[in-house]
Amino acid sequence: MKKFCLVVLAMLPLTAFAYPIDVQKQLNGMSIDYNAYDTDNDIASIQVNNYGATDAVCKVVFNNGPESPRTRTIEVPAGKHKNATAKFTRTIIKMRINLSCTPK
């Protein structure tokens, strides 16, 4: 039993807990796609892909609940992608991202 408990305790650092990410999007008819990532326990990021023929200006708001939201504005050229990240002072439990894009 002691060996079993030792093995379980040794494996604890190997388990990683990802937090859920909810993305609310307002794309205004543009061909935009996104991939949201939990980079670290206090860092969130999103990759915005522009598949359309016009450049886009996107506003990304990262909301972690008790902390103030972090706002990033990125310009995504046609056929390219850009990343936006936000670091928080607390561990993220649930991330809410608002993505709104308009033509440039």
Results as ranks from 00 to 15, higher is better:
Asn50Ala: 10
Lys25Gly: 07
Val23Lys: 05
Ile21Asn: 01
Asn35Gln: 12
Pro13Glu: 03
Ala10Val: 12
Ala10Ser: 10
Ala56Gln: 03
Ser45Lys: 03
Cys101Arg: 01
Arg96Ala: 05
Val23Tyr: 06
Tyr51Gln: 05
Ser68Ala: 13
Glu75Ser: 13
Asn98Asp: 08
Ala53Thr: 10
Ala53Phe: 06
Thr15Tyr: 08
Met1Pro: 04
Asp55Lys: 05
Glu75Val: 15
Asn28His: 10
Ser68Trp: 06
Asn98Gln: 13
Thr73His: 08
Thr102Ile: 15
Ala84His: 09
Phe88Leu: 09
Arg70Leu: 10
Tyr19Gly: 02
Thr71His: 07
Arg90Ile: 04
His81Cys: 14
Arg70Pro: 03
Val60Leu: 09
Phe62Asn: 02
Asp42Asn: 15
Thr91Leu: 12
Asn50Asp: 04
Met95Gly: 02
Thr89Glu: 12
Thr89Arg: 09
Met1Val: 13
Thr89Met: 06
Thr54Gly: 08
Thr71Lys: 13
Thr85Phe: 09
Thr73Ala: 09
Gly65Asp: 11
Lys2Thr: 11
Ala44Tyr: 04
Pro69Ser: 00
Asn64Thr: 13
Val76Cys: 01
Lys3Trp: 14
Ala56Leu: 05
Leu14Met: 09
Ala44Val: 12
Glu75His: 10
Glu67Cys: 03
Val57Ser: 09
Gly29Gln: 02
Ala84Glu: 11
Val8Tyr: 00
Asp55Tyr: 07
Val48Trp: 01
Lys80Thr: 15
Ser31Asp: 07
Thr15Trp: 07
Met30Cys: 06
Val60Asp: 01
Gly29Asp: 03
Ile93Arg: 14
Asn35Glu: 14
Pro20Cys: 10
Asp55Phe: 04
Ala18Arg: 07
Phe17Lys: 11
Pro69Asp: 00
Phe4Ile: 15
His81Tyr: 14
Ile21Gly: 02
Cys58Tyr: 07
Lys82Ser: 10
Ser68His: 06
Met95Ala: 09
Arg90Thr: 09
Met30Tyr: 00
Lys3Val: 13
Leu99Trp: 07
Tyr37Gln: 02
Phe17Ala: 10
Ile32Gln: 00
Lys94Ile: 06
Ser68Asn: 10
Thr89Ile: 04
Leu14Pro: 11
Tyr34Thr: 11
Ala16Asp: 03
Asp22Cys: 09
Ser31Trp: 00
Leu27Arg: 00
Val7Leu: 15
Ala86Lys: 07
Pro103Gln: 15
Tyr51Val: 00
Thr85Glu: 08
Ala56Asp: 08
His81Thr: 12
Ile92Cys: 12
Gly79Phe: 08
Ala36Thr: 05
Thr73Cys: 07
Met30Glu: 05
Asn35Leu: 13
Met11Thr: 15
Thr89Ser: 12
Asn50Phe: 01
Met95Val: 01
Pro69Leu: 01
Pro69Lys: 01
Val57His: 07
Ser45Arg: 05
Leu99Ser: 01
Thr102Lys: 07
Ile74Asp: 02
Ala36Pro: 00
Val61Arg: 14
Pro69His: 02
Asp38Met: 07
Asp22Thr: 14
Asp33Ala: 08
Ser68Gly: 08
Asn83Ile: 15
Ala53His: 10
Asn64Ile: 14
Ala16Trp: 11
Ile93Thr: 14
Asp55Ile: 05
Leu6Ile: 10
Glu75Asp: 12
